[in-house]
Structures are given as C-alpha cells and as structure tokens.
C-alpha cells in the first residue's frame, strides 16, 4: 500500500458551532511538517470519506518557529505546527485547537487576551520619544544581557498558557508569558525605573500569588524561556515592594 500521512483534525465551523472530527490522508513525502501537510489539504481538501470539504482553517506565517502564529495541539502537545515534523510524529497525527483561548474556526483561536495582559503589566521601556537623544541605554553586563535575551525570545505563542493549570476561564490568573515579560522589563536599567507599577499590577488578584508552581510552563516553552526563574525573581521583587509599601510611605 502506498505510504500516506494520516491527519485527524478537530474542526469547528465557528465560535458558536459544535466541534467535530474529520480525517484526511495525503501521499507521504519526506520532510513534511504539519503546516506543509495542511497546505497540501488546501489544494486537495478531500476527507477520508472521499468528500470535497472546506479546507481546514489555521494560522501560520513564518514557518520557521519564530512568529508563534501556528501554535496548536499536535498529538496532545501544544507546539508550533511548522516545527512538528511528520517523520517524528505517530500517526494518525491528531490536531486540535488550543483550549485556553476562544475558537475562531477549526485550528484558529483568538489569543488577544495574551496581548492585553502585556498592557496590564506595562511590558515596555518608557521613552521620552523615539528621537535620538545622542546617548545609548546604560551599559548592560554580558551575563545580564544573556538572561534578558532568554526572556526576550517570547513570541506570545500561548504554549505556556495552554498547559498552566491556573490559567483558565474561571480564573483571573494572568499566566506565565506576561510574567516573563515583566521580569524582562524590570531587569532593564531604565525599564526598571517603572518596576513599582508593574509589581503593583502583579500584587493584585490574578497576579503572582495565583501561580500554583506546577512548572508546566517551562517544560513546553519552545524557546526554553526560564519562566519559573522569572516568577521566582518577581516574587522576591514583590516581597520587597510589599515591605516598601508598608514602611516607606
């Protein structure tokens, strides 16, 4: 029998529709990844029953695991579909949308709340305008820059949020990704000037105290961001801030 790639996909026509499973087979070729297989289906959207159906809807852009768009659950694990090589996966390859975010259609979900969380923690370095001020930022030790670089690789893909037991509809927890970004900006020589505002946002309900220390986040992060280290460091900073709030008024 001809070798094939067998996909089993959880589909949903719209936010209010019911989900259903649909299966597809395409001819095998080496070096396929999940996105290149889905691209094949866009041209040949024929399911296992031989019916021509609407092509599967999904998000992708860079196809090299840097833009974060194509995150979905591949054989039970949230990851970037472009970097999920067919040759490494058990078949049928089961594709599901992330469950912690509202469904748009099929494998396409809406991760806007992750971007909104970045606003809440003010994940930026405040500038007095983008004009040249004829000065660099203060010097940064290579070791500090190495840690900042590790945090700065976050592509807001949602894997860490997906596996966090504390992050769900019924909880206010902000989730691991924005905490990593808070640590990043607090560690910048001038970004740190605004540490207090960021920490206060995290000392409210849904902040640091809601982390259950399950440590799932670091295990799935495709960029190996030391998220638990960020959370530990922020906890230390928040304690100092709490004492400061009491005694230095």
């Amino acid at each position: 029998m001809e070798k094939t790639i067998h996909l089993r996909i959880k589909r949903q026509d719209g936010p209010a529709s019911s989900p259903y499973w649909e299966e597809f087979k395409l001819p095998y070729a080496p070096q396929h990844n999940v996105i290149s297989a889905l691209l094949y289906l866009r041209e040949h959207p024929i399911n296992l029953r031989g019916e021509r159906v609407a092509p599967v809807v999904w998000e992708s852009n860079c196809m090299e695991e840097v833009c974060g768009a194509c995150t979905m659950i591949v054989n039970g694990t949230p990851r970037q579909a472009c970097a999920a090589l067919v040759d490494d996966l058990a078949q049928p390859i089961v594709l599901e949308p992330l469950v912690k975010f509202p469904i748009v259609r099929d494998l396409h979900v809406d991760r806007q709340k992750m971007f909104d969380a970045l606003k809440k923690v003010k994940a930026w370095v405040p500038l007095d305008g983008s004009q040249d001020i004829h000065q660099h930022a203060p010097r940064i030790a290579p070791a500090d820059q190495a840690l900042r670089y590790a945090f700065s690789r976050c592509m807001t893909c949602g894997c860490c949020m997906e596996v966090c037991p504390q992050y769900h509809d019924a909880s206010a927890f902000i989730g691991p990704a924005p905490l990593g970004q808070t640590a990043l900006h607090n560690s910048h020589p001038t970004g740190g000037f605004f540490k207090e505002e960021r920490l206060h946002a995290l000392m409210e309900k849904g902040g640091l105290a809601d982390c259950g220390n399950a440590q799932n986040c670091v295990k799935v992060c495709p960029k190996d961001i030391p998220l638990t280290q960020a959370i530990g460091e922020l906890g230390r900073q928040a304690t100092i801030q709490w004492l400061r709030d009491i005694f230095v008024k």
Binding site: Q131, A137, R139, P142, H188
Partner: peptide
C-alpha cells in the same frame, strides 16, 4: 542617521549582544 536609530533601539530595551564592557 543609522547610529542614532540604533541608540533609540538600545533605549527601547532591545537585547543587543554585548562586548565584555557591556556596550553593543
């Protein structure tokens, strides 16, 4: 204008790789 643009990026917090002296 390139050096000025780089300085602005540095101020925005871009994690540029550093020399042992901590400059870009």
């Amino acid at each position: 204008d390139a050096p000025g643009l780089i300085r602005t990026y540095d101020r925005m917090g871009v994690t540029f790789s550093r020399t042992p002296e901590g400059i870009m």
